[in-house]
Design a protein around this nucleic acid. Structure first.
Length: 112
DNA sequence: CTTTTGACTACGG
DNA sequence: TCCGTAGCCAAAA
């Protein structure tokens, strides 16, 4: 994981708007790193900056990445609820909440 | 050099 | 819907 990749990933995560979520793979794609979904998880694990909306990154299936019984799972669910994103029956409805960045938003990352 | 390891994903059954 | 199974791919062991 080059620092550059991590930087790109964090930039994308920070641009996920409140009220929507993105999958690990989607973040990787937008960061110009197709096939690197697992790297996104790794970068998030290693970076707990205050302004980082890590909770908006979930699995492509709509499930959160953590065990239901864990504290981190409950915290993520709470943060999402505060965003207006509800976790129903263990999953977020991706058809409703998945981030669909506009062409403008995508192009804004051009330095990649 | 090889094997293992992930906050993952697509696909079947 | 829920599982197991292959793929995935760079980093660490």
């Amino acid at each position: 994981m080059s620092n550059l990749s991590a930087k790109r990933i964090l930039t994308i995560v920070k641009s996920i708007p409140k009220g929507s979520v993105a999958s690990y793979g989607q973040v990787a794609d937008l960061a110009g790193l197709p096939g690197r979904a697992r790297l996104v998880g790794k970068v998030l694990k290693e970076n707990s900056e205050k302004d980082l909306p890590w909770h908006r990154v979930i699995r492509a299936s709509g499930q959160l990445a953590f065990d239901e019984a864990s504290t981190v799972f409950k915290q993520q669910r709470k943060l999402l609820a505060n965003d207006g994103v509800t976790v129903c029956n263990r999953r977020v409805d991706m058809s409703l909440f998945q981030w669909k960045p506009s062409l403008e938003e995508v192009l804004h990352q051009l330095p990649f």
